[in-house]
Amino acid sequence: MARRRKGRDIHGWLVVDKPASITSNAVVNKVKWAFEAKKAGHAGTLDPEATGVLAVALGEATKTVPFVTDALKAYEFTVRLGQATNTDDAEGEVIAQSDARPTDDEIKEALNGFVGDIQQVPPQFSAVKIDGERAYKRARDGEEMELAARPLWVESLVMLDRPDADHVVLELVCGKGGYVRSVARDLGKVLGCLGHVLRLRRVWSGPFNAEDGVTMDRIQELARSEEIDSLLLPMDLALECMPEVKATDESVVRLKNGNPGMVIAQGVEYGEECWASHNGVPVAVGHFKAGELHPNRVFVL
């Protein structure tokens, strides 16, 4: 007999304002415990020392994680100019230094080369897999690897502040799979002064904002109490990136079983991806064809 999974059937999103010095997986585990949830996951890893938006999905909301992961996200970060580290952030060892310092105008000009479709090489200390093993594990053993460049869409990269000659504060808005540490490293190379990330904060991710984030202290305070459910946001927030159609009473069961079902739609094109609701509750995600939704993801609520 299969073991019964422990925990509550609870569904929704929690926006955590992640503090430094904790991994993203550790945050998810704490949230899962606090809510006594059967299932939990997050929409995009933050480095342990990074802060800001870590969107945690509970229950059926985990099925909407890809829509948040694929959405644009924004980071505010400080680059330490004049130094390169082996991790491309302040946690690593300084491996090279430079006395060169660019002007504000030189920085702004260089930022233009990082906008649009770019190719980005992940940091040596990253979760990229090399022959089935994480790159950071090999890097810890002193191995230097040639990591393949990966495509990244950068919506914008702007300078917010220049506190002094050694530091510059930037804001990056990018798509899925971006490494802020790589941006700092590559910008330093382009400017001829080297660089690494000193501080990093994710200010928003898709529909979720850091200003709406819940602290870990608050989660701990309300852990396993009735009040903690008030912190949850509806799971359909993650579906705002696509049009909504209405499932008919007769089609709900068909859709939940993964079969095409009739929907009421306005302004939706043939083949367009959309999500179906019934009485305000998400039912399925799929493609609209000839008055029907052909589901590829269903929700059991």
Rank of each mutant, 00 (worst) to 15 (best):
K137N: 01
G92T: 04
G178S: 13
L200R: 10
V203S: 15
G44A: 10
L293P: 10
G82I: 05
D236V: 12
D249P: 11
R4I: 10
N86Q: 00
L147W: 04
Q266T: 10
G92D: 04
V197M: 11
V298E: 06
P123M: 00
E272P: 06
N25K: 08
V190K: 15
V168R: 10
V268N: 03
T248V: 05
N112R: 07
E106M: 05
V31Y: 07
V16T: 11
C274A: 08
P19G: 06
G258I: 04
L157M: 07
D166T: 09
L172Y: 11
V94H: 01
N86D: 15
R199K: 15
L231E: 02
A265I: 09
K30V: 10
L232G: 03
K289S: 06
V168Q: 11
R80T: 10
V15E: 00
D217Y: 02
E211S: 08
E146N: 08
E36S: 14
V15Q: 03
G52K: 09
T64H: 04
K137P: 05
L187A: 13
A84L: 06
K189P: 04
R80K: 14
R4W: 07
T64Y: 03
F125G: 01
Q83W: 04
D47Y: 14
A100P: 00
G291F: 11
I95K: 01
A284K: 12
C193L: 14
T248C: 00
A223L: 08
I95T: 03
V173M: 11
G206I: 01
K108W: 01
G261A: 03
A238E: 01
A40Y: 08
G206P: 08
R5N: 04
T64W: 10
T215A: 10
L239W: 05
E144S: 14
A139P: 03
P282C: 06
Q266G: 10
N279R: 05
K176H: 15
K18N: 02
A90V: 07
V283K: 06
G92Y: 07
G44V: 06
V79D: 05
M216K: 08
T85P: 08
L239R: 08
N209H: 13
L293A: 07
N29K: 13
E93H: 13
F35P: 12
L194P: 00
E93K: 12
G192P: 10
F114S: 01
N86H: 05
T45H: 07
